[in-house]
Design a binder for these strands. Structure first.
Lengths: 337, 337
DNA sequence: GCTTCCAGTGGGAGCGCTCCCAAAGCGCAC
DNA sequence: GTGCGCTTTGGGAGCGCTCCCACTGGAAGC
């Protein structure tokens, strides 16, 4: 009865011997496969308990050619990109979906040459059953690696200038358009834009959405003022904007972090939000609610993004052929606009 | 010359044959091991290139009994705990350290029974070479799993009521004491506290630090008002506090999220920060700088925490016996106190 | 009575790598 | 010429699992 902690891990052979059955039967019993009599099944279960057996996942992986793991690769020039709580939410969603498919999550921050090299090694050496790829920039070396990867690849957000076979994205254009239209509907006429990085598809798509809405309303779109999705860059962009166009009365920022930075600058220059300048963000992360005033923003289903990526990957691993997905966004109106 | 994409992955045997050497020599050449002549080494390299060979990491893992991966397990009752940007920073640090040891990172969000079961399975089936464990609560089932794990375990923060053999922690008591002393030095006398969860060691230690400082200054410590480290819970705690003690003139919150919530309530009840109520947080994450007013807070070296955990784990995997580590904290004074 | 079928069983051949060890090759001192 | 010690080489035995396949025996069908 006592589950003695074994010095060395018992193998399936030892379990089989202890239970008085063959290795095949023991294996089948362990995997809940058919063709095992009730008696032997119970004998195996008993032996497992008594020996404290736990199957060696590596050996199993070698025999089945399945690692039981999926990788989430987040690209970027430096690791701080990952500090964006956006990714944490994606991971929560992905993790849940992988859990129910019994896959482990490997997280790869491909933010240095070394990191990218290790991702490549992982892909080539089949250290995972599939990959989810995020935050690719223009000419990202990971794009090539993905092409050559001998395993399923799902993109989170589309890479710049190419439509991969499998991806999950959010409706960036539609969200940005709706945000801008909201500002216009509030009577704002000099609506500026703080873009995200224009070497990412999300950055470009959100600018397109803004531009479409402005043109649609018969207004002049501002040229892009580019930030890098950080609070600091949003503040800098807002400062530059106000210096050149002191009469701006509305701003669409391509994410909440930058919107928060913009808010700070608007306040610091003595203007009121939303009375003097109305601000809309994008993401609807925690910062939007904490901001002062709380941020009107485009809600995107971040956890669902992660979940759907993982689901799509699981489908691929199981030999299915899922179709790409674009998740809807939704304007959430708070005090800032 | 052409690196034809192989339908089936070539094996080391095929590489060896193609290079006209034995499998052993090919293996040695690939691993940069000695006892390989220059000529054969080059022949192997050529064959690798021509066949587009990539070693199968699973087979290697089976033979070497090393998976090449380390797991980071984050415990919690529900997955949203992971949304705290704190963990993202830990991961950035850990990931960098693991990268230089050529270990992959497996991320496990053990927030459900299913998740915990899978962690247990991972530990027992040797799906990783070692584990880092974080955010354990009192009587956390993961504590037992860690005891029984047949692999190195490093704790991030100490678990409640026990000192594991290997851990990395931050000086929670010292930081909280310094924060409280700062409030006292500003002339505040009715300094309340918004605790973190008291079933975590960090929550308890920070309350102890607060208490020590109050008693040391000859002041009456408040009893704990408990939050759960979220903005919302900080707001609720602050509201409760002000209802019962309208004359509070200082608050130490056990993390920045809760401090931000407190700030919001203080503002909403028409009080000024810091004039009427001074507020100090703990963590020094991004939210501290974005808060209005910017938060005086206890800075803790979050990325270093992750990095040192990973380093300690690498040392353990390599058969060394590192010593536990407590990282220093430092008060960062901004506008809120 | 015979064949037919199928659940149940165990042997054996992998999966693709590492690493031990015996053997071969070779220079050099005696 | 012999012996010693070194590097280099390749064969083979694992690592611990899955899965194919051949075999058994009892129930069902004729």
């Amino acid at each position: 009865m006592a589950e003695a902690a074994p010095r060395r891990h018992p193998t399936l052979d030892e379990v089989a011997e202890h239970a008085g059955v063959s290795r095949s039967v023991a294996s089948r019993a362990l995997n809940n496969a058919p063709h095992v009599s009730r008696a032997k099944r119970e004998a195996v279960e008993r032996a497992v308990r008594q020996l404290g057996y736990a199957r060696n996942s590596t050996a199993r992986a070698l025999a089945t050619r399945q690692t039981g793991a999926a990788a989430l690769v987040i690209s970027g020039e430096d690791p701080s990109i990952f500090a964006d709580p956006f990714f944490a939410r994606v991971i929560v969603g992905a993790s849940a979906a992988l859990d129910s498919a019994d896959l482990h999550l490997m997280l790869c921050l491909a933010a240095s040459d070394r990191g990218r090299k290790r991702v490549e090694e992982l892909l080539r050496s089949r250290g995972a059953d599939g990959v989810m790829l995020m935050a690719l920039r223009e000419d990202d070396p990971l794009t090539r690696m993905a092409d050559e990867a001998q395993m399923p690849v799902v993109f989170g957000g589309r890479p710049v200038g190419s439509a991969p076979r499998w991806y999950v994205d959010v409706d960036n254009v539609g969200g940005a358009r709706e945000a801008t239209e909201h500002l216009v509907s509030l009577g704002r006429r000099r609506v500026a834009v703080i873009c995200g990085r224009l070497d990412t598809e999300a950055g470009r798509a959100r600018y397109r959405g803004y531009r479409d809405a402005m043109l649609g309303a018969g207004l002049d779109p501002f040229p892009p003022t580019e930030g890098d999705f950080t609070e600091r860059s949003g503040a800098a962009a807002m400062a530059a904007l106000l210096a050149e166009h002191p009469d701006v009365d509305g701003v669409f920022a391509a994410n909440d972090n930058m919107a928060a930075g913009a808010l700070r600058i608007v306040r610091e220059t003595g203007r009121r939000v939303p009375a003097d300048v109305a601000v809309v963000g994008f993401d609807d992360l925690a910062v939007a609610q904490v901001a002062d005033p709380p941020l009107t923003t485009v809600h995107q289903p971040v956890e669902a993004l992660g979940r759907e990526m993982a689901r799509m990957l699981v489908a691929l691993v199981n030999g299915q052929d899922p179709t790409p997905l674009v998740l809807p966004t939704r304007l959430t109106v708070r005090a800032s606009a």
